[in-house]
């Protein structure tokens, strides 16, 4: 059985690092991280993650733009996306994203909860 691959795209690089550490510690995922939208899109193409955690609000290309690009590209369209938000009040953006993404998470989230959310989302999408 090959490891599931997770990509985290968030300009909060410390957050990326720690989530990576945690997931690698408590789960069996292979985790890669990207600090902005452009790098994120690039590594989505190369790394071919099963699931992407994507921050909505990022400088440069914001999460919503990245999401649309990911879904429009045949190489990345099959990656399942969970949006990350820190505000908890950008329903509009989440609504806009909803037709493309699987779910969203409001920070802060603790590691066990995150792990469960990822597992469930993968399962729901038939990625075993």
């Amino acid at each position: 059985m090959t490891k599931k691959k997770i990509l985290i795209i968030d300009d909060e690089t410390d957050f990326c690092k720690l989530v990576k550490r945690n997931l690698e510690l408590i789960s069996d995922y292979e985790v890669s991280i990207a600090g902005d939208g452009k790098k994120g899109f690039k590594s989505a193409k190369e790394f071919k993650p099963h699931l992407i955690l994507l921050d909505i609000m990022m400088p440069g290309i914001d999460g919503l733009e990245v999401l649309k690009k990911l879904k429009a590209d045949s190489e990345t369209t099959s990656s399942v996306v969970i949006m990350l938000t820190a505000r908890g009040d950008d329903e509009l953006k989440i609504k806009a994203a909803q037709s493309y993404c699987e779910d969203y998470i409001t920070k802060p989230i603790d590691a066990p909860e995150l792990k469960i959310k990822i597992e469930e989302t993968l399962k729901r999408n038939g990625i075993k």
């Binding site: 720690l18 945690n22 510690l25 820190a86 505000r87 409001t106 920070k107 802060p108």
Partner: peptide
């Protein structure tokens, strides 16, 4: 106040997210 609050939410929840992950890491490590 709403604009202020959502700005504050973003600025504070991000570091909280990091702290939370950090605590979990230490807890497991």
């Amino acid at each position: 106040l709403g604009q202020l609050a959502s700005g504050v939410a973003h600025e504070v929840r991000n570091p909280l997210g990091i702290i939370m992950q950090g605590i979990d890491y230490l807890e497991n490590k």
